[in-house]
Amino acid sequence: MFAPTDPFYPAFQILSFLGFVLVLIPLPWHFQAWNSGTCLFMIWTALSCLIAFVNSVVWANSVDDVAPVWCDISTRLIVGISVAIPASSLCINRRLYKIASCQTVSVTQADKRRAVLVDLGISLGIPLLQMPLQFIVQGHRFNIVENIGCYPTTYNVALAYPLSYLWPNVINVVSGCYAVCTLRAFLRRRAQFSQFLSLNSGLTATRYFRLMALASIELFISLPIVTYALYLNISHSPIEPWISWDNVHADFSNILQVPAIIWRADSHSEASVELTRWTGVICALVFFAFFGFAAEARKHYRFAFWAIVKPCGLTPPPNGTIPFPRVKLPWNKSNVPPSLPYFPTPQSCQEALRLPLRRQPH
């Protein structure tokens, strides 16, 4: 009988899948508003939730190498996601700062395209650059961690810090600087803010403050986690000197399989692994908390819901009522089975009230 050793089973599986779905459904709405930073944040977050969901299901109570190709692909993506989500948050904070400081932001189509290209360069270009750079210090192919799944590995050499470990911290610090500058600029130019914001189609004051809150909370979530992971790498394992490429990749085909009883025995290792896999799920739930209840988002969620349940016989209600499946009865009004109880209709009740009362005989 299956007895999961994961204390978060099945909560993590459910929340990671819900995070994947809830983040992607409002994506067309943000595409139409030219919110490239927000769209990239949604895509990277959804991808993180999807990978975490698949890994947690396939490798629940298992360390078997059942999908090596999936592990090769997913570990590359995990490396990119580690900097992609902070980079997308940086794009959001950068745009909010330019609006709060009343700079020219996406007024013409050319300005919008230029802003989108800059956001793509930050939140897509940096992850695509990080993936091959991390391969330089990748000691072996990948790890398989029980209940976690495929996990990327980095040889703890001095060169790994500028190539891999420090990138999320640097991006988060830059994003934090933009967030502070955004708040200062907004407090100084509150009178001009509403007028300038009206020039930016697709961005209202409510959406602006939601984006500000989303980027700030992502910063407060991501920065402590990556800083704690950096601290563990420095303090709990020796930093080896870089000797050569052949030395680092000497046993590259090795696949390290780590049972849960081993990686959970160390509290620091357990905290680092759990925080890493929950980061994408938390970002997805935070995004839904800020944008999932907006009128346009509810419209997309409603459309997706009825598209899913339509094959089951349910149809959208015409006036907001909750419909029930239509069941075709094998009889009609003139052919009612005698076993069914009789319920008087309003017409029959009215006719009965018109009848004179008859005194019953004693």
Score class of each variant (00 low, 15 high):
D111V: 03
L50P: 13
L120S: 05
I99M: 06
W331D: 00
K299D: 14
A158R: 12
G19T: 01
T38V: 11
C177L: 12
T45H: 14
F53I: 02
N200Q: 12
Q103M: 04
F196S: 02
M131E: 06
C349V: 03
A229F: 10
T345Y: 02
F220Q: 00
P132T: 07
P338S: 13
L117E: 09
P241R: 00
N254T: 11
R113T: 09
Q350L: 13
P28R: 12
L353Q: 12
F193V: 01
C181D: 05
V248Y: 06
A158M: 12
V248A: 01
A213K: 13
A158W: 08
F135R: 05
K112I: 13
M131V: 15
I99D: 02
S216H: 07
P361G: 08
F288K: 06
T345F: 02
R326Q: 15
A158T: 14
I43L: 09
G19K: 03
P86K: 04
L166M: 13
S201R: 08
S194Y: 13
V157C: 15
H268A: 10
N247P: 01
P341E: 01
V118G: 02
F41L: 12
S48G: 15
R359H: 11
I261V: 14
T227V: 06
R113W: 14
E218F: 00
N254C: 06
T154F: 08
C283P: 01
V273M: 03
C312R: 03
K98Q: 15
P316R: 12
Y161A: 14
W44A: 09
L18Y: 03
I144D: 04
P132V: 10
Y178V: 00
L219H: 13
Y161W: 15
I92M: 11
S82R: 04
A295T: 13
P26V: 09
R277Q: 04
